[in-house]
Amino acid sequence: MSASQDHPPVRTLISPARYAQGPGAIERLGELVAPVGRTPLVVADDTVWSFVGDAVARSFDAAGLPLTRDGFGVYATAAAVDSIADRVREVGADVVVGVGGGSVIDAVKAAGHLAGARWVSVPTVASTDAPCSALSVIYDEDGGFEEYRFFPHNPDLVLVDTRLVANAPVKFLVAGVGDALATWIEARAVARGDGTTMAGGAPTATGTALARLSWDILWEHALPAIDAVRDHLVTPSVEKVVEANTLLSGLGFESGGLAAAHAIHNGLTAASQTHGLTHGQKVNIGSVTQLVLEGAPVEEIRAFVEFTTRVGLPNTLTEIGLTPGDVDDLTRVAELATAEGETIHAMPFAVRVPDLVDALRSIEGFSRRVRADAGLPEPVPHRAH
Rank of each mutant, 00 (worst) to 15 (best):
S2D: 07
S2Y: 14
S2R: 08
Q5W: 14
P8V: 07
A17T: 12
R18S: 10
P23M: 13
A25R: 02
A25L: 03
L29G: 04
L29M: 07
G30C: 03
L32P: 00
A34P: 03
P40Y: 06
T47E: 11
D54F: 04
R58T: 05
D61G: 09
A62I: 01
L67K: 02
T68C: 12
R69Q: 15
R69T: 11
T77S: 07
R87H: 14
V91E: 12
G92E: 04
G100Y: 02
G101K: 02
G102T: 07
D106L: 07
K109N: 05
K109S: 07
L114K: 01
V120T: 04
S121P: 00
V122W: 05
P123K: 03
P123F: 05
A126K: 02
S127N: 04
S127G: 08
S127A: 15
C132M: 09
C132K: 00
A134K: 04
S136P: 00
D142E: 13
G144H: 12
F145M: 07
Y148E: 00
P152K: 02
N154P: 08
P155H: 01
L159E: 02
L159P: 02
T162S: 14
T162W: 09
T162N: 12
R163V: 00
N167K: 05
V170M: 10
V170D: 11
F172P: 02
L173S: 02
A175C: 10
V177A: 08
G178H: 06
L181A: 03
V190I: 10
A191H: 08
G195M: 07
T197G: 08
M198T: 02
A199I: 05
G200A: 10
A202S: 13
T206Y: 13
T206E: 11
A209M: 15
L210R: 13
D216V: 09
E220Q: 14
H221Q: 13
A222G: 06
L223N: 01
D227Y: 15
A228T: 06
A228C: 07
V229T: 09
D231C: 12
H232Q: 09
V234H: 01
T235D: 05
P236L: 10
K240P: 01
V242T: 04
E243R: 14
T246Y: 07
S249D: 00
F253I: 01
A261Q: 03
G276A: 05
G276D: 06
T278P: 00
H279G: 04
Q281R: 09
K282M: 10
V283F: 03
I285W: 11
I285E: 13
Q290L: 00
G295Y: 06
P297K: 01
P297D: 13
E300K: 14
F307C: 02
T309M: 01
G312T: 07
L313G: 10
L313Q: 08
P314A: 14
T323S: 15
G325V: 06
D326A: 15
D329Q: 13
D329V: 15
L330E: 06
T331K: 13
A334S: 15
G341R: 08
G341H: 11
M347H: 06
F349A: 11
F349Y: 15
V351E: 07
V351I: 15
R352F: 11
P354E: 11
D358M: 03
D358V: 06
G365L: 09
S367W: 03
R371H: 09
A372V: 09
A374P: 04
P377R: 10
E378K: 08
P381I: 05
H382F: 13
H382M: 09
H382R: 06
